[in-house]
């Protein structure tokens, strides 16, 4: 009797009804090749289990135990400043500078934020954080497809947000520790998130997923805002030509 591959597989997985199972077993007694097909399936299962079962015995990472216990979990909190659209009234420059400094470390943000706003890459207006200076120019003018590799601001992904606005991710090369995402609204680039860009990995451990160039916090915000797919080079140039108006 001839059994299909799926029947042999289901037998090896213990998924057959009693009658079919008996038929396979009867046939196996006479058919070494059939027995071998079953053995092959079982060996594969054994091999997979032998490779992955040791994971069961690993000590549980503390962060997982903490998340089960429901300790307040702030993913990326250590590296991200979420820039709330509706900042509290009186959210003034020194406050925001102090908060930012406490979140990412004064050494990193200080030179950018605490300097006189005119010279910095960021300014605040009406409680929002806006790009200024070279960052604002790059966001308005630079195309990811043709930017010089040495440019101080590197544009990453450009895309339409769900509310229709154009948004772009960037990395400040000069301060290679900062990356962010800004959206165009009311003739300005409003920052949605600013994050510490992890140092390029020393080729040390394990795998680096493709796309790891964006810090997790920025990537996370991108995923939350994006509608559809990012702009390709043609759509990016067209959006620039329209002045990033929706």
């Amino acid at each position: 009797m001839n059994f299909s591959d799926e029947t042999v597989m289901a037998y090896a997985d213990g998924e057959l009804d009693a009658a079919t199972r008996a038929a396979v077993e009867a046939a196996m007694a006479l058919d070494a090749q059939l027995a071998q097909r079953v053995a092959r399936h079982r060996a594969l299962r054994g091999r997979l289990r032998a490779a992955l079962d040791p994971v069961l015995d690993e000590p549980l990472p503390e962060r997982l135990l903490a998340s089960v216990r429901g300790a307040p979990v702030q993913r990326h909190a250590a590296e991200v400043i979420a820039l709330k659209r509706k900042a509290a009234p009186g959210w003034s420059w020194p406050q925001w500078g102090a908060i930012a400094a406490s979140l990412v470390g004064g050494a990193l943000l200080g030179p950018l934020l605490l300097r006189a706003p005119a010279g910095g890459a960021l300014v605040t207006r009406d409680g929002q954080v806006l790009a200024s200076g070279a960052l604002a120019r790059a966001l308005t003018e630079q195309l990811a497809s043709s930017q010089p590799p040495g440019a101080p601001v590197q544009i990453g992904v450009s895309f339409r947000a769900r509310n229709g606005d154009y948004c772009r991710t960037f990395v400040l090369r000069e301060k290679s520790t900062l990356a962010g995402l800004a959206c165009r609204a009311h003739e300005a680039w409003r920052l949605e998130v600013l994050a510490q860009n992890p140092a390029p990995p020393a080729a040390a451990t394990g795998y680096r997923p493709a796309g790891s160039a964006l810090p997790a916090g920025v990537a996370h915000t991108l995923d939350e805002l994006i509608a559809g797919e990012p702009l390709d080079a043609g759509a990016e140039a067209a959006a620039r030509a329209r002045g990033w108006q929706p």
Partner: peptide
């Protein structure tokens, strides 16, 4: 899905080569 989107835009980024 998110990686696919990012990978297309950061094309030269490291692929998942195994080191170690």
């Amino acid at each position: 899905r998110a990686r696919g989107r990012r990978a297309r835009l950061f094309a030269p980024a490291e692929s998942g080569e195994q080191v170690g």
